[in-house]
């Protein structure tokens, strides 16, 4: 689905047209679940529903681009997460990987191993070993498909700080995956 289609869908959704909402849902719901699932596994569906209902309250008066809308959706999702974490007495941070990634079988080759991972496992493999701030930047950049500026707005940081964080994260990942594969 192209960006143009989604822009039109966004305009229709703002008018309360169901088809527009449906297209946006199909584009954003998987990202939302992957993002929320990394923070709060088994609670992502509830949190995503709450997020959509909160988004619905804003849609009628929403003015902006698709990027702005993405940023709005993930800002709301992040707030829901913060509330959720507060209820549990925790701070917002992506969960570490539940299972340490194993070195890929050299026979099979890293590519083949990686391809069998699900999207959620890939997300976990990407950010699970990173410090919270770096992990959050990568989640929002990769999973939520936000640009540096939008990530900065969602996280309440400067764009420069976000760039630094993502740079450090990628260097760390490069070091980690150098010569290794990731398997399940």
């Amino acid at each position: 689905m192209g960006e143009l289609d989604l822009e039109q869908a966004l305009a229709a959704a703002c008018r309360g047209e169901e088809w527009g909402v449906n297209l946006l849902f199909r584009a954003l719901q998987p990202q939302l679940l992957r993002y929320l699932g990394q923070h709060a596994p088994r609670r992502e569906q509830d949190l995503a529903s709450e997020t959509w209902l909160a988004v619905a309250e804003r849609l009628a008066s929403f003015e902006g681009s698709l990027s702005d809308f993405r940023a709005l959706v993930f800002t709301i999702a992040r707030r829901r997460l913060v509330d959720h974490y507060r209820q549990e007495g925790r701070r917002l941070r992506p969960l570490p990987m539940e299972q340490e990634a194993e070195v890929a079988d050299p026979e099979q080759g890293p590519e083949g191993v990686v391809e069998v991972l699900s999207a959620r496992e890939a997300v976990a493999a990407l950010v699970g070993s990173l410090p919270p701030a770096q992990a959050e930047v990568l989640l929002l950049r990769v999973v939520a498909d936000l640009g540096v500026e939008e990530v900065a707005a969602v996280m309440g940081r400067s764009a420069a700080a976000v760039r630094v964080l993502q740079h450090r994260a990628l260097r760390q990942l490069a070091k980690r995956f150098a010569g290794e594969g990731v398997t399940k």
């Binding site: 849902f25 199909r26 719901q29 998987p30 679940l33 992957r34 890293p110 590519e111 990686v114 391809e115 991972l117 699900s118 999207a119 496992e121 890939a122 997300v123 493999a125 990407l126 990769v142 999973v143 498909d145 990628l170 990942l173 490069a174 070091k175 995956f177 150098a178 290794e180 594969g181 990731v182």
Partner: peptide
């Protein structure tokens, strides 16, 4: 050095599953 990261990113940004929708 970033090939593996690129693969993970591609998967993480993969299409929606039926369960997700």
């Amino acid at each position: 050095a970033l090939r593996e990261v690129a693969r993970l990113v591609r998967i993480a940004r993969g299409p929606a599953t039926g369960e997700e929708l």
